[in-house]
């Protein structure tokens, strides 16, 4: 069931961010936010796998590449909002944090949570990606073909 508000695109973006963020950063920022909303489990954290697929020739028909470990959970806040998490790895605490934040992002706490948790997470991921891309860029080469002796 798609939720009408907030829009799916926004929710997709924060759920993706929560899934990809390092667990330690998420735990630290969530602890700093200092909230402990009451909730009940709809589905307590469950560790499983997702089959990752590729495409033949990068753009062709799908094939099964191999699985990755994933933890999922769903919960309902006392105020009624439902939060879901599907996060890579086997960290049930991370999945719980992600699901609670997903639920709270549907409440009036959203702007404050975005500033306190989501934006720093996004900045951290972007900085790590930029640093890596910068290192890769420093290894960019220009190859010059040499004239071989017999052709000279």
């Amino acid at each position: 069931m798609a939720q009408p508000d907030p829009t799916n695109d926004q929710r997709k973006a924060w759920m993706s961010l929560l899934a990809k963020a390092p667990a330690a950063d998420l735990a630290r920022l969530w602890a700093g936010y200092d909230a402990a909303p009451a909730f009940t489990w709809l589905r307590p954290p469950e560790i499983g796998m997702v089959m990752v697929r590729g495409r033949a020739g990068a753009i062709g028909a799908a094939f099964n590449l191999g699985e990755m470990s994933v933890t999922r959970c769903s919960l309902k806040l006392a105020s009624g909002e439902v939060g879901h998490a599907y996060v890579q790895g086997r960290d049930t605490a991370k999945a719980q944090n992600a699901a609670v934040i997903d639920a709270l992002m549907q409440t009036e706490a959203a702007p404050r949570l975005r500033t306190a948790v989501l934006m720093p997470l996004q900045a951290g991921l972007a900085a790590a990606a930029d640093a890596r891309a910068g290192k890769a860029a420093a290894t960019k080469v220009e190859f010059f073909t040499m004239v071989r002796g017999e052709n000279a």
Partner: peptide, 21 residues
């Protein structure tokens, strides 16, 4: 690369992580 999964409870896809390939 990001790994995207359809979330059955929500009816849309979410990036659930990243794999190096």
């Amino acid at each position: 690369v990001a790994v995207e999964l359809d979330i059955p409870e929500l009816g849309f896809a979410v990036e659930i992580g990243e794999v190096t390939v």
